[in-house]
Design a protein around this nucleic acid. Structure first.
Lengths: 199, 199
DNA sequence: ACCTGAACACCGTTCAAGT
DNA sequence: ACCTGAACACCGTTCAAGT
């Protein structure tokens, strides 16, 4: 036993992430266990601790990758002439289509008072960049930091609407309701924001 | 051993909820364990299963009580002439002051595809009622179901902003930022909403 | 150097056995 | 009828021992 060297450390790391994501997609975050991951990649538990310091580390990497996937999703569906509303609805769509992974972003939290790693926050922030660019483009009156604040506010709001949807049972009706909320949110917020007086 | 009858079932239930909330407040949801609860109330593990069917049941009751606490908090701080913004900032204030309990509302989720109990949803909804009343009062143009939609949208949005705050480390600066986001959100949303054309 | 798998401490839940 | 506490299955993590 031992010393198989069939896969490099990097390959094992990728395999772990891949099967872990499959588990979360299919059975949800609560079903994610080391032994299950080990069995699925054909190694034993100890191997996972060669490539991740612990479960928390592994989970943070999956969460970071989910933000990357969201960014990708928003980028892919972005067309010329795309609106802020399209972007917000794209976010909601991603959450619905990736329920398990998306819910895990919030079901798992660092312990009270613990720090979130910097590389994680970067991937989190990057998913908001497209919204910043879009607001910036359609606006002349606000300063950069005001656009930044509006971006954060709007994205966090959309997140809140999506969160409420996924806390209930997803159904065609609840999804329709969440979409209506996002549409109303974007519509009202943008109108109010563009009417804001310059300082 | 056994047959102490020092406390009624109802009393034990209340004691369990009380110490469980203390644990979550101080150490967070991840520190909530049956054995710890049992030790804190001076009973053994088995006793907890006399009054709750399982941990999930206990947790759902704590979460329901947190919504009740939020409702209470909003009701208490409501003055004559209070604005929508005051209400939204009151929500944020509650989340900051009750970080552990509030975070648990979202850290704990029912399993993928599982149903949320009805009595829980009722307590959740009730915390939104004050906002509905306030929007209704300051508005003449919208139909009831439109006011309902606006209430959901606004409350979920505030929730999203608060969630983002509590995912990071709470600090005077991040709290100030979250407050600014809530203020901007309410201001812009309300202005846009009141300008909406009647159908 | 890489990987195993037994061992450890801890977890939620059950239930026969005491009073 | 009420409550105990040992037992069970399962969990994340470690690390001496194999190749």
């Amino acid at each position: 036993m031992a010393r198989r060297s069939e896969h490099s450390q990097a390959e094992i790391k990728e395999m772990v992430l891949e099967v872990a994501e499959d588990i979360v997609r299919e059975y949800g975050y609560s079903a994610l266990k080391v032994r299950k991951i080990a069995a699925d990649i054909g190694y034993t538990v100890g191997s996972i601790y060669m490539v991740f310091t612990n479960m928390n580390d592994l989970i943070m990497h999956i969460k970071a990758r989910t933000w990357q996937k969201l960014h990708q999703h928003l980028q892919n569906q972005q067309k010329i002439g795309g609106t802020v509303q399209d972007l917000a609805l794209g976010y909601l769509e991603f959450a619905v289509e990736n329920e398990g992974l998306w819910r895990m972003l919030f079901e798992h939290q660092v312990a009270l008072g613990e720090q979130v790693p910097d590389w994680y926050l970067q991937d989190n922030q990057r998913a908001f960049e497209l919204m910043y660019a879009m607001l910036k483009q359609h606006d002349q009156v606000h300063a950069d930091n005001q656009v930044q604040l509006a971006t954060q506010t709007l994205m966090n709001s959309v997140q809140g609407v999506a969160m409420h949807l996924l806390m209930l049972n997803q159904s065609p009706e609840t999804i329709k309701l969440a979409k209506a909320e996002v549409v109303l949110l974007v519509e009202c917020f943008l109108q109010g924001w563009s009417n804001e007086v310059k300082e």
